[in-house]
Amino acid sequence: MPEEPRKAARLDLSGFAPKGRAPALDPVQERASIEVGKRLGFDARAPVEKVDGRTLRRKNKSQMNMRLSLQTQNDFKRLVTEFDDADACLSHLIQLYRQSKA
């Protein structure tokens, strides 16, 4: 037996009002907050050199996807710039690893 279609849900959004922006900190308070964060070990505001991944792409290569921490990814991208491509860099790292185990 076919079921009867359910009635459409009616949402009452009349009481909805978007929240405004959070109040901005004054510059003195913001600098003080950043300094406290640095003393506690937070370095999210540290300058990070970004490398565009598109510059690392080469043709006739297979793709390998990995989940990495942002720091490891940035370190690898910086290191790759010293090689012809990512394949040469990774091959070199593997060779060094094997030599260290021998």
Rank of each mutant, 00 (worst) to 15 (best):
R57L: 13
Y97Q: 15
D85Y: 00
N65L: 14
S100Y: 03
S91H: 12
N65I: 12
P47R: 15
I34C: 03
D84H: 04
S69P: 10
E82T: 15
A102M: 10
K50D: 07
V80W: 03
R10W: 02
R78W: 01
L25F: 08
A8N: 02
R57T: 10
D87V: 08
G41P: 08
R45I: 14
A32K: 02
D87L: 08
D26A: 12
P18H: 01
L68M: 06
R21E: 09
A86M: 11
Q29T: 12
S69Q: 15
D26M: 05
F42R: 07
L70A: 05
A9G: 14
P5R: 05
L70W: 05
C89S: 07
Q99Y: 00
P47A: 08
L96N: 14
D87W: 02
D85Q: 13
K77G: 04
V36M: 06
R10T: 07
F42C: 11
V28T: 00
P23H: 10
P23C: 12
E49K: 10
A46W: 07
R57E: 15
S100C: 05
K101P: 02
D52G: 07
R98C: 06
Q99G: 09
D43A: 00
H92L: 10
A86W: 02
K77V: 01
T72V: 14
I34T: 15
A102I: 12
Q73F: 11
D75Q: 15
A9E: 12
K101F: 03
P5N: 02
V48L: 04
V48I: 08
S91F: 14
V48H: 03
D75F: 14
N60E: 09
S14F: 07
G15H: 07
Q73R: 13
V80F: 09
F83L: 05
V48F: 03
T81D: 10
K61W: 01
A86C: 13
Q73H: 08
R10E: 07
G20Q: 01
M66I: 13
R67I: 11
E49S: 12
N65K: 15
R6K: 01
R98K: 14
K38G: 06
L11C: 02
M66A: 06
D43V: 01
I34S: 09
R54A: 09
L25Y: 08
P47L: 11
K101Y: 10
A46P: 01
